[in-house]
């Protein structure tokens, strides 16, 4: 009998906590508030700072969803190379084939997270000026395959120094 009363009281107490103090709640309250206030914006698809502006993603995109848009002021990256444009991804045309992600030289040549991603590029901390000086460590035929889509081949200048 005492056990029974204990079970009833414990159940009542845990239900009290659930109802009045929202214990065990799994709903994402941050997301709920953001949705009700209309603050949800699409995730960023392009990391504008880490991008090297080679135009490979726009050339390789099978649906033409990526357009290169001109920067207001071009940025010096390395000798003989300035970043003048960055890609812009139109999600309504994108089929998420990840070609842009896989062809991005920052990912394909240097092994860092790609600066374009069809879903969410995330936060990148890549120093582009240092990255370009690093030697490339992938096979020759793969480099040739990637380089046919690049509009600026300066990124391949260190390929012999491996």
């Amino acid at each position: 009998m005492r056990n029974l009363i204990r079970i009833v009281l414990e159940g009542a107490f845990s239900n009290f906590k659930r109802i009045f103090f929202a214990k065990d709640r799994v709903t994402d309250m941050e997301l709920r508030n953001a949705i009700l206030n209309g603050e949800v914006v699409p995730d960023p698809k392009v990391a504008e700072k880490a991008c090297i502006g080679c135009g490979g993603c726009a050339n390789v995109c099978p649906t033409g969803a990526i357009e290169m848009k001109k920067l207001n002021s071009s940025e010096w990256l390395a000798v003989g190379w300035a970043k003048t444009e960055i890609p812009e991804l139109n999600s309504l045309k994108c089929v998420n084939c990840y070609h842009c992600h896989d062809f991005c030289p920052v990912y394909a040549l240097f092994g860092e997270p790609a600066t374009i991603h069809p879903n969410d590029v995330g936060e990148l901390e890549v120093n582009v000026n240092d990255l370009i000086e690093e030697p490339i460590k992938i096979s020759e035929d793969k480099i040739n395959y990637i380089s046919q889509y690049l509009s600026d081949k300066t990124v391949l200048k260190n390929k012999k120094s491996k």
Partner: peptide, 19 residues
């Protein structure tokens, strides 16, 4: 309304439907 994505993100569906 059009919701892009492959597959669509739950966040996008929710905010789209609520909006």
């Amino acid at each position: 309304a059009k919701i892009p994505g492959c597959a669509v993100r739950p966040k996008d569906i929710l905010s789209g439907v609520v909006a």
